[in-house]
Design a protein around this nucleic acid. Structure first.
Length: 295
DNA sequence: AGCTACTCCTGGTAGC
DNA sequence: TGCTACCAGGAGTAGC
């Protein structure tokens, strides 16, 4: 699934073919890909603009638009499960899953393909709402072990759904959360506030190193869906230590890996590397009266 | 606040 | 061989 490393890879690959281009036309074959704006309104906002910059934020591709040299809003692309971007000339066969296309002033087309129709390419005049909804970028300097520890301390959710929450930390999805939790020896059901400083430090380091390594290998392609815009699969799936490996031996300790469901998500753990949190049935009763280790 | 359930989609596959 | 049923999953929403 496209998560941060896959989106980063896609953005890097299509950026040189899009930045500086003017959008000259629009073909919409799946209007819901526009996220609610009618094709006519979308066309009015987008056609005639020039793509000033293209960057990634969380799992979004952010197209910065200008008209006559003045800022003219943004296109937000989200690949969700199966979305793909292609920039191609007329000879490209876009196949049956093309949801919309933008024609460009160099004669090429930007195609948005998406088998499962969850992906979106929306227009927004401002990024304010997006920024309010998103947590920090895990590869930016603002994401520090100290920040993570402090943020975990205030949360009483299980780690897995918390790390998947884009409002907590941006860009992680099911694969890289499982990998990061395994690498840091933390169980996905552990309540965030119970992670100690050492655990938060390991988690911070794991998130950064795993995402960086995955970007270097152009993301993960474990099924037929994700491909770089060049049509190449990513290579990081070869590095998976837990994701999709249930029933196989842990590459760290040899123990058989398990598949759990946590927060309605398939979740992969090593029962030895990631000890399950103790059941705390008396928690509600003990919360106030029990002596606290923290000040 | 945080949980579960549900929704959106369709290709792939397990089971018969 | 062919059918059906179910699953995957990011993110939004509803209800508790």
């Amino acid at each position: 699934m496209p998560e941060l490393p896959e989106v980063e890879t896609v953005v890097r690959l299509v950026r040189p073919r899009l930045v500086g281009r003017t959008i000259t036309g629009l073909v919409v074959t799946w209007p819901r890909a526009l996220g609610g704006l009618s094709p006519a309104r979308f066309r009015a906002r987008v056609v005639g603009t020039r793509i000033r910059a293209l960057r990634r934020r969380a799992k979004f591709a952010v197209f910065e638009l200008e008209r006559s040299g003045r800022a003219a809003g943004y296109l937000l692309g989200h690949l969700r499960m199966t979305g793909r971007f292609h920039v191609e000339d007329d000879s490209f066969d876009s196949g049956p899953y093309r949801r919309l296309s933008l024609s460009l002033d160099d004669g090429r087309w930007f195609h948005f393909l998406d088998v499962r129709k969850f992906g979106r390419l929306t227009f927004t005049p401002s990024l304010d709402a997006l920024e309010r909804a998103l947590g920090p970028e895990p590869l930016e300097p603002a994401f520090t072990a100290e920040w993570l520890l402090a943020a975990l301390r205030t949360r009483h959710r299980q780690l897995k759904p918390l790390l998947l929450d884009q409002g907590f930390l941006a860009g992680l999805g099911n694969i890289y959360v499982d990998e990061a939790l395994h690498a840091s020896g933390l169980h996905p059901r552990l309540v965030a506030a119970r992670v100690d400083a050492a655990g938060a430090t390991r988690l911070h380091a794991a998130i950064r190193s795993i995402l960086s390594a995955a970007i270097e290998r152009e993301g993960s392609s474990f099924d037929t869906f994700y491909r770089t815009p060049e049509g190449q699969p990513g290579q990081y799936q070869e590095q998976f230590r837990v994701y999709g490996r249930d029933g196989q031996p842990c590459r760290t300790c040899g123990c058989t890996l398990l598949r759990l469901v946590v927060g309605q998500r398939g979740t992969h753990v090593c029962p030895r590397c990631q000890p399950a949190p103790r059941a705390r049935r008396a928690r509600a009763a003990g919360r106030r009266g029990a002596p606290s280790k923290r000040a």
